Computed example of a mutant assay.
Amino acid sequence: MTLISPACRDALQGWLEREKSLAGRAENTLTAYQGDVSEFLSFMTLHHGQSQGLTALAKITVSDMRAWMAQSRNGGVGARSLARKLSAVKGFYRWLADREGFEPTAVLSTRSPKFQKKLPRPLAEEAARDMIETVELQSLTNWVAARDVAVVTLLYGCGLRISEALSLTDSDTPLGATLRIRGKGGKERIVPVIPAARDAVDTYLKLCPHTQSPDAPLFRGVRGGALNPRAIQTAMAKARMQLGLPATATPHAMRHSFATHLLTAGGDLRAIQELLGHSSLSTTQAYTAVDTAHLMAVYNRSHPKA
C-alpha cells in the first residue's frame, strides 16, 4: 500500500517549493520539513487504513492529531522534536487549507508539547580569548592554524553563525569596517568588523596556498574545496579539552558569547538584535546571559529615580 497518495505528495512538493522561493528556507530546513510532514501523512494512512487524499486530509480530527502525537511519543520522539514536527505539519496545513479552501482548525489548534528550552551557554570573556589563542595550536600546518583562528575570531568578533562565516567568498576581502551578511531566511544585515577579525583574515589569506578568485569560498579545506564546519568543530573540541572547558564551548557558543559580552558591557538589546539578525527580540534575550547582580548594578547606575 502506498503510504502517501500522489495528490498529497504533489501538494507537499508544492509547499516545499513555496517555502524555498518565498520564505527562503535553507536546504536543511526543507529536508527536515519534508521528512516531518511525510511521516505525518504516512501515519494518517496507516491510522485510517487507506491512502489519504486531499479530501481526507481536510477531515482530520482532533482525535487523529492526538493519536499521531501519542504514537510519536511512544516511539521515543522527545517533546522538543515533536514540537518541531508539529510546527512543520501546521505550516503545511495552513498553506494547503488556503489552497484547497477547507478549515484546518483541528490541526492548527493542536497544542505543542511543553519542553524546557535550553538556554545557550556563553563562554566567559577570558575563556573566549583563550579559545581563540588555543585553537591555533591544533594544527601543525601554519595556514590551517591561521584559518581556524580567523573563523573563530569572526564568530566571536562579529557574532556570526558558522554557516555565515563559511559562506563568505574571496570577493568579500579585504574585509572593511563592515560586512554584509545573508543569514537565515535570506535576511541581510550589516555587521561591524573589529580590527582583530580583519587582521586574522589577512594573516590567513597571506598563508593560504590556494588560488583566490571572486566566487571561491574564502575559507578552504586542505584540498582547496569549501571548508566543512566539522573541521572547526573538531579544532574547538580539542582546544576546549586542553582548556578544561565544557562540551558547550562550541562554534555557536562564540556567537552567544558575542551577544552576552556586548550586553554586559552596556550594549543596547535592540542593537544586538540587529547585529545577530534576529526577527524577534525574545530570541535575542535567550541568546544573552547577564546575571541579576549586573542588571541591578546597571539599573542603580542608570535609572533616574535610583
Rank of each mutant, 00 (worst) to 15 (best):
A253C: 07
I132P: 12
A79L: 09
N300Y: 04
L57V: 09
H210F: 11
S87P: 03
I181L: 08
R9D: 14
T31P: 07
L30V: 06
A83L: 09
A56V: 11
E188K: 05
P251I: 13
A32T: 12
A58W: 05
M44Y: 13
A235N: 12
H47R: 01
L30I: 07
R270F: 14
L30N: 02
G75I: 07
G101Y: 09
C158Q: 07
A239Y: 04
P174I: 02
K118N: 12
H278Q: 06
G186D: 02
R230K: 07
T178M: 13
A177D: 15
H294I: 07
L119N: 09
T203G: 14
L30A: 04
A259W: 00
L205P: 09
L140N: 10
T141A: 06
S51V: 10
S257Q: 11
R230D: 08
A226K: 14
K117T: 11
E126G: 05
L160P: 06
M236L: 10
L168H: 04
M44Q: 14
A146N: 03
K85P: 00
Y156W: 05
L269M: 14
S38P: 03
W15Y: 11
G76W: 05
L16H: 05
L86A: 02
T45A: 15
L57E: 07
V222C: 00
E126T: 09
V222Y: 02
D291G: 05
A58D: 06
L140Q: 12
T105V: 05
D36Q: 01
A83M: 08
A237M: 07
G244P: 14
S109P: 01
N74Y: 10
L54P: 04
L269G: 10
P104R: 09
K206G: 08
L155D: 03
K184S: 01
L276Y: 12
T178H: 14
V37H: 01
A70D: 14
L123P: 01
T203R: 15
K59A: 08
G14D: 15
A196S: 15
V191L: 02
A271C: 11
T2Q: 14
A235K: 13
S81C: 04
A226D: 12
T260V: 11
S21P: 01
L205C: 12
D130V: 10
R18Y: 15
M131I: 13
L41N: 02
Q52M: 15
H252Y: 12
L30S: 03
M236E: 00
L155V: 04
R111T: 15
A150I: 05
H278C: 05
T211Y: 08
P174N: 06
V77L: 15
Q285C: 01
P104V: 11
C208M: 07
A253I: 04
G91V: 05
W143H: 02
H256W: 08
A247T: 08
V144A: 02
A58H: 04
I194F: 15
D202N: 11
T250G: 04
V222M: 04
